[in-house]
Amino acid sequence: MAKPKVAFYWAASCGGCEITVTELGMKLVEVGDLVDIVLWPCLMDFKYSDVEAMADKEIDVCFFNGAIRTSENEHLAKMLRAKSKTMVAFGACSHMGGIPGLANNYDKESIFERVYDTSPSLDNSAGTRPGISTKMPEGEIVLPSFYEQVKTLDQTVEVDYYLPGCPPVAEQVGAVLGVILEGKLPEPGAVIGVGKKTNCDECERTKRSNGHVRIKAFKRPHEILADPEVCFLEQGLICAGPATRAGCGLPCIQGNMPCRGCYGPPEGVEDQGAKMLGAIAAVIDAKTTEDVERVMDTIVDPLGTYYRFNLPDSILSELKYGNGNGKQ
């Protein structure tokens, strides 16, 4: 039997998803023996034209990380979708938009203005802005265009499976590769490489007073020395653990940092940010409106906190951009 053909691709991402695959270490060598890698820009030298030349559905599995920010991201997503039997959204950015997706609370022009004009570390007195097309003596050179909004992979092409995480932890990547090689993937549409409930289910930190502590002021991780044995939320640190699907094995929490929510919402939640906002608001210690305001004022950057990894996937984005947010 021919070895399955596998492609890895990165769109609007940081490269962390590639690193997590290399974290498989010696297992990766085994994987390399079992599969035929046909595209992996980070590690191996293939050209887009190699993929273009392939027949439709020739690739067995494509692991696509990164959000869709530019026309190039979209082009590659569509091309790889056509060439692949199975498309896996790999990591938080392709799954929900991820950190690049936070840019959805700015428009393209204000992002360009910041990046090319007003950034304090910048000297762009010539006022250069990236152009889509530039004429050079040798001919025309083109750059991808920068879209108005960040989209998830499944808002661009049909996605068969979601492997969440920023990045997905290596153990889960290894487990998913195993499942694929055994041909035991679940029904398409499933979130794979995850646990059942939320992170709190696996978290061993203690809850005081049987879980009846309420919060007078929220803190940020650098403001206190967190007790490594006690629930972060009870210490006033906003932890996304209650709103986040289990599966990562809690590396952040074990490192004494609250969960940031990269594994996405549990089953049944459509808007992770709104749901988490509702939960965090419910634990405040307030007897008057002034108390509410005082506690609320201690939540720095609520949008970035509640929607850190999922803004493009949220109902908020859907309301802002209209039907353009619909899943494929």
Binding site: K197, H212, P242, A246
Partner: peptide, 8 residues
């Protein structure tokens, strides 16, 4: 999941 948000 035993997060305890309900009790709070």
């Amino acid at each position: 999941a035993g997060c305890g948000i309900c009790g709070m």
